[in-house]
């Protein structure tokens, strides 16, 4: 039991008036020569939340992050980060954010202390103590050269460098890919810590288990379009897996009526598996009444199943949170 000040315990209630969104994108489009990375992405990310962007590899997550940090100009559309337009003032954006990518490219020949000192000289005086405390907490020896560190330690150093100047927005681009569970736990705790103190975290990942623990809002990006976007708890509650047993493998079943939406459907022998959104208990009875249906079972879908369901169809229409 730690003795934190109780004042920080009271987080803003969900229906308190929120401040301006930390990140907004408006019809962001990015065409590359061989693929269309983003096709009209519009998002709003509220401050003090953990936002997770899910997507397959190559779905466009990294491209979007590069646009948000001012490293890439989009083909069309605009975005705002911390109130600054990254196209016009990328330095202004980068000053306010911390960014950790997967396999961060740090200077191999520097020691941990040297890279901390080097980076600290560009920020204010509080950088170095924060950095050193962080390094101490991760039990990394400061005189070691970065090229002699393991992958996990390197990721921790990158995270410490990104957080030491207490940015209001932390962007993580698959930072724990290929790292051991202990390091992943460390990152998770950092993210939680940031959220607990009111800062925003933008996480791009496909570690579904981590996302389920730590995210407030998620969005699923598939082939450059947002398929799903909304608060995690509500999304999970609203999507169910429905298994219907029928008497005859060839029998076809009518789709559940509106407002239910079928995300995917799969058949295996005499069972049909559907992932349905906004499925109400009345529909179970209705389904049971249908001719040929022997049994209907339903449960809440896991985030992994939701992710797979959203990313298997090409032409499913974009869905947004119904808030």
């Amino acid at each position: 039991m730690s003795s934190e000040a109780p004042a920080t315990d009271r987080l803003p209630e969900p229906n308190e008036t929120t401040m301006e969104p930390v990140i907004t994108t408006d019809a962001l489009t990015m065409h590359f020569r061989r693929c269309d990375a983003l096709m009209g992405v519009s998002l709003e990310i509220q401050p003090g939340t953990v936002f997770a962007l899910l997507g397959e590899n190559g779905a466009g997550k990294t491209t979007m992050i590069r646009i948000l940090t001012g490293f890439q100009k989009p083909t069309s559309g605009s975005c705002t980060v911390c109130g600054v337009n990254p196209l016009r003032d990328p330095q202004g954006v980068r000053r306010q954010i911390g960014y950790v990518s997967d396999a961060p490219a740090l200077y191999d020949w520097m020691t941990v202390a040297q890279i901390g000192g080097f980076t600290a000289s560009f920020y204010d005086a509080s950088f170095l103590p924060n950095y050193e405390a962080s390094i101490r907490r991760y039990e990394i020896r400061p005189e070691q050269k970065i090229r002699h560190l393991s992958k996990g330690q390197r990721a921790k150093v990158a995270l410490s460098l990104a957080l030491a100047h207490d940015p209001s927005l932390l962007i993580l681009d698959e930072p724990t890919s290929g790292l051991d569970p202990k390091v992943r736990r460390n990152f998770l705790e950092s993210m939680i810590d940031r959220a607990a103190t009111g800062r925003t975290v933008f996480l791009s990942s496909h570690q579904i288990s981590e996302v389920e623990r730590v995210a407030d809002t998620i969005a699923i990006l598939h082939h450059g379009r947002i398929r799903l976007h909304g608060p995690l708890a509500e999304l999970r509650e609203s999507i169910h897996e429905v298994v219907i047993d029928v008497d005859d493998p060839l029998r076809s079943i009518a789709a559940p009526p509106e407002p239910a939406e079928v995300l995917t459907e799969e058949t295996s022998g005499r069972s049909r598996q559907l992932f349905v959104r906004h499925f109400s208990p009345e529909m179970i009875h209705a389904l049971r009444e249908m001719p040929g249906v022997t049994e209907v079972r339903t449960r809440v879908a896991t985030l992994e199943e939701i992710f797979v369901a959203c990313t298997s169809h090409r032409t499913a229409p974009a869905m947004t949170a119904s808030i």
Binding site: S2, P6, D9, L11, I192, D193, A196, T197, R213
Partner: peptide, 22 residues
């Protein structure tokens, strides 16, 4: 008995503080 703060508890169980607050 005093319960741990939201921050501490969210750190302990590795969950989003909003969830713990809820």
């Amino acid at each position: 008995q005093l319960l741990p703060s939201v921050r501490a508890l969210s750190n302990q169980v590795a969950l989003n503080p909003n969830t713990v607050a809820r």
